[in-house]
Design a protein around this nucleic acid. Sequence first.
DNA 1: TTGTTTACTTACTAGTAAGTAAGTAGTTTT
DNA 2: AAAACTACTTACTTACTAGTAAGTAAACAA
Lengths: 188, 188
Amino acid sequence: MSDTRENIVDKAEELIRTKGYNAFSYGDIAGVLHIRNAAIHYYFPSKADLGVSVVDREIDKIASSREEWGDLPGNVQLRKVVERFYGSHRRGWICLNGSLTPDFLTLPDPLQKRVKEMCEVILDWMTESLEKGRKDGTLAFAGEAESRALLVISSLLSSLLLSRVLGKEVFTRMLDQLLKDIECAPDR
Amino acid sequence: MSDTRENIVDKAEELIRTKGYNAFSYGDIAGVLHIRNAAIHYYFPSKADLGVSVVDREIDKIASSREEWGDLPGNVQLRKVVERFYGSHRRGWICLNGSLTPDFLTLPDPLQKRVKEMCEVILDWMTESLEKGRKDGTLAFAGEAESRALLVISSLLSSLLLSRVLGKEVFTRMLDQLLKDIECAPDR
DNA sequence: TTGTTTACTTACTAGTAAGTAAGTAGTTTT
DNA sequence: AAAACTACTTACTTACTAGTAAGTAAACAA
């Protein structure tokens, strides 16, 4: 993949995660990369193509992390995910899910499909990690793992959204409480 | 308030909660109300003014519900809120919070201010309801009420977002689990 | 050396956005 | 009866938006 192509996807991801899909334009990307709008159309004929590339890359990233961390205990897997959200929070970025699901109905069909796929992959992964944690004794929670996974994903997604509006300390409060709720041997 | 004015705010709220603030235009509203774009500018000189009106009305609605339900037990207050989310879910609408916080950085200043205010009001109300529920013995949860309120708000907000993408059964799953987690005497 | 592909730029189109200025029909006030 | 106000419409401007067509300089391939 050429540098320019990758830089475009990088910038598109940043813009989606700060301003939202409907609020950024090819001009925003062209401006900072010092290229022309048409150069972006050369790599990504339509804005939908660019959006799809951003989401596809995220799906790939999730798949590699899942593989890389597969052997770790359930609670450590969860903490790794939480760590990644800390990274996003530090940069002031929300997650792709938190940015794209509110705009879902306005997204072009192929992009909707990828967003759905991404959601399913995340849910499946989180469900597996929680199940593993319950089995290996590092996590404890009531109910089905998938329902719990949905609630955990909620908290992660919303912690980035709400902390942007209510102040950054909200982020830590939420994720601290989340881990206390579900971890078996909380460090003190 | 004139009919036209109220109809415009109604439609704007619907559009914000289905397509998002940056994805709707005065034309969308004018089309269904059979008026001209300029008629909307007559009542709301700028799009920001219209957005502010939508959020202000929501803040007022929250204040009246809070007053109306103030004497109910904590768990009933919570269930009233959950019921309202069921209503939104049935119509396919997300909540104003879930729609406006992702776009927060793109919103004009006065609208950002109102969104923040709305978030604070919701958090304060939910915190109070949870505290009351813990005192009156209808709710049980670990940690501070405000942290718990943040997580409950998360789940409500995200249940609308995620069910839109993953399928409507996700909504019930999430809210059922949420209530089981926190209610003292779950009905069976 | 010629032809082709890559990675763009320049210059453009067509559509849509918010917003404004001036006009008007009907109602209310003086 | 005249003046003023209300609730709009018509007609317009300015500023983007995504997207396209044609051209070009440099690298590469036959």
